[in-house]
């Protein structure tokens, strides 16, 4: 028996396959969620079945916001539980997990590998991946370019709490001739301050692990560490944390 985790987020869909002992990642798959979760789930299914294991030999757990669209899953679990489990696998069992997702951001407190508390951002997209995506788009940049620019900029304050208002704030900053670097830096700063406000609603452990799509955005990770006053660790596998956790719980 091998264990698969399928994590269908709002922006990206992830699949991983773990070995029988659940100690090693045998395969990973990352793809955009697209507009049809069911179709995305189907593609991941095909991928899974192409890895050389029969269906009877696979146990599949689905998570993420599109988990209901995975009809072939043996079980579904929420992304909170899975991200917690996955982060414990990647970073150890006593830490605070920060997941900046496409449409929501979560903070998960792990104690001895178990989720003991969590909080998600409220119904607004400030402080989520969506915010940065919208801002990068508005400046005509891809996310990688956006972070590269942000790194060389001097932070301008973006005060709007709401993504839509922040977007128009950025438009007027651009109109004033503010360098894009500074605006990008400000946008990252805005997300970081919202995320840290969320973290501070819980009793954090002082050790942080970042999961989700920004795990390779070094500038954001560093900034987050500065604001939280503690090291934020992560790894390229951080974006697979939900899928890894799902597979572990299979």
């Amino acid at each position: 028996m091998v264990y698969a985790g399928i994590d269908i987020g709002s922006t990206a869909a992830k699949g991983v396959l773990l070995n029988e002992a659940k100690t090693e990642i045998l395969a990973r798959k990352l793809m955009p969620s697209g507009w049809n979760s069911r179709q995305t789930a189907e593609e991941l299914h095909t991928w899974l079945l192409s890895l050389g294991h029969s269906r009877e030999d696979l146990r599949i757990i689905a998570t993420g916001y599109g988990r209901v669209s995975v009809p072939y899953a043996d079980k579904t679990l929420t992304e909170i539980t899975c991200h917690g489990k996955g982060a414990a696998f990647l970073g150890g069992g006593d830490l605070t997990v920060i997941d900046i997702g496409g449409q929501d951001t979560k903070v998960i407190v792990l104690t001895g590998g178990r989720v003991t508390d969590f909080v998600m951002n409220d119904k607004c997209s400030a402080g989520t991946g969506k915010f940065l995506e919208v801002m990068a788009n508005r400046m005509g940049l891809g996310l990688d370019e956006f972070f590269a620019m942000a790194e060389t900029g001097r932070e301008v304050k973006i005060s709007s709490m709401c993504t839509v208002f922040a977007e128009s704030e950025i438009v007027s900053l651009m109109g004033l001739g503010t360098p894009r670097e500074d605006i990008a830096c400000g946008a990252v700063g805005s997300v970081v301050s919202k995320v840290s406000a969320l973290v501070n609603r819980k009793s954090p452990s002082g050790k942080y692990y970042l999961t989700g799509g920004f795990c390779e955005a070094g500038f954001l990770v560093r900034k987050l560490g500065e604001v939280l006053g503690a090291e934020v660790i992560t790894s390229p596998d951080g974006r697979f944390a939900g899928a890894i956790g799902a597979a572990l719980l299979g």
Binding site: L77, I80, T81, R114, V115, D117
Partner: peptide, 25 residues
């Protein structure tokens, strides 16, 4: 936090589902 609409049903299901999972582990 919620209101009378059903707009947040999915978000609530995730939060409450995760809470129940947390109580069960």
């Amino acid at each position: 936090e919620t209101d009378y609409t059903d707009q947040d049903a999915e978000q609530l299901k995730t939060r409450i589902g995760a809470f129940l999972e947390m109580l069960g582990n």
